[in-house]
Design a protein around this nucleic acid. Structure first.
Length: 310
DNA sequence: AGAAATGATTCGGC
DNA sequence: GCCGAATCATTTCT
């Protein structure tokens, strides 16, 4: 009588209860999980310990924007923050794993004990374990998700160049200003000139572009404010020009490129007194540069400063 | 602390 | 693809 009742109860259990919510949504959230896993792996958070993956990812991402060579500090900062995240991720993950297995054994023991008083089929145990694992893995998925978010935030913080802007060195701005004011009639450096300037200033070509873009627009917006600066640099170039006239060799020691930094006939030769009158008269300073932008092909030096001939 | 300066980004036009 | 313009985010000056 007793075994018969037992088997009946087993059958009932088989058809109801735990069997209903079974291997279903397991597949549905898989793609997302895979994506998260891949992302974490790519960022160097998951996967092998202390891999170069993180650094590689950073350098790959930053190389497109162009960074100054002193970015190693930021990189180490980024790496330390990333390893912090990784540590948290791994310890949490381990904790969950441990908790999961502990809970599983606990439940198994319970079921084993219960099996003395009621029918507990091995399939029921299996399902129970599966449910527990699913629950814990969903928690782990949440952890993965938030870790991903943290990494993304970290990346955006470190990769957004505006956040870690550094002023250029004094020497660099000097070089750029010299070029700008000696080519005030047409302050659009050619590709070669940009590269040369970038080399001289230890910055990237795109930074040179940014600088000239900013300079042009800010100069045009407020010419008066830049008058003094213009005078200073005009003086400098004038001095360089006279020096180059005196000596047979050109003092453009840096000149491996195809442009000259001197524009002597833009300077009127009046000393920059503190008077109101503008001393320096770069040809077209009325803001109408546009239109006289020389095409990129015209990079031949010598015919550099051909301003307002009429 | 607030203003000014400055380098970088975004967007629309050509 | 470059440029001007507007804007953002940070640094430097006051």
């Amino acid at each position: 009588m007793k075994p018969a009742l037992f088997s009946v109860l087993c059958e009932i259990k088989e058809k109801t209860g735990l069997s209903m919510r079974n291997a279903q949504e397991e597949e549905s959230q898989d793609p997302q999980l895979v994506r998260l896993d891949n992302m974490l792996l790519a960022e160097g958070v998951a996967g092998p310990e202390k891999g170069g993956g993180a650094a590689a990812a950073v350098s790959a991402a930053t190389s497109s924007g162009g960074m100054s060579p002193d970015s190693s500090l930021e990189h180490s900062d980024y790496k330390s923050k990333l390893s912090q995240i990784r540590n948290i991720y791994h310890t949490e993950m381990e904790k969950y794993d441990q908790a999961c297995s502990e809970f599983t054994t606990h439940v198994m023991n319970l079921l084993r004990e219960q099996s003395r008083t009621r029918p507990v089929s091995p399939r029921e145990i299996e399902r129970m374990v599966a449910i527990i694992h699913r629950k814990f893995s969903s928690i782990q998925t949440q952890l993965k998700q938030s870790t991903c978010e943290a990494v993304m935030i970290l990346r955006s913080r470190f990769l957004d160049a505006r956040r870690k802007r550094r002023n250029f060195s004094k020497q660099a701005t000097e070089v750029l200003n010299e070029y700008f004011y000696s080519h005030l009639a047409n302050p659009y450096p050619s590709e070669e000139a940009k590269e040369e300037l970038a080399k001289q200033c230890s910055i990237t070509v795109s930074q040179v572009c940014n600088w000239f873009g900013n300079k042009r627009i800010r100069y045009k917006k407020n010419i008066g404010k830049f008058q003094e600066e213009a005078n200073i640099y005009a003086m400098k170039t004038a001095i360089v020009a006279t020096q180059s006239e005196d000596s047979p060799h050109t003092p453009n020691s840096t000149g491996s490129g195809g442009f000259s930094l001197t524009g002597p006939d833009l300077f009127l030769g009046v000393p920059p007194m503190n008077g109101e009158q503008p001393v320096y008269m770069g040809a077209q300073t009325n803001g109408n540069w546009q239109g006289q932008n020389t095409p990129p092909s015209a990079t031949s030096p010598g015919n550099d400063h051909s301003e307002e001939s009429d």
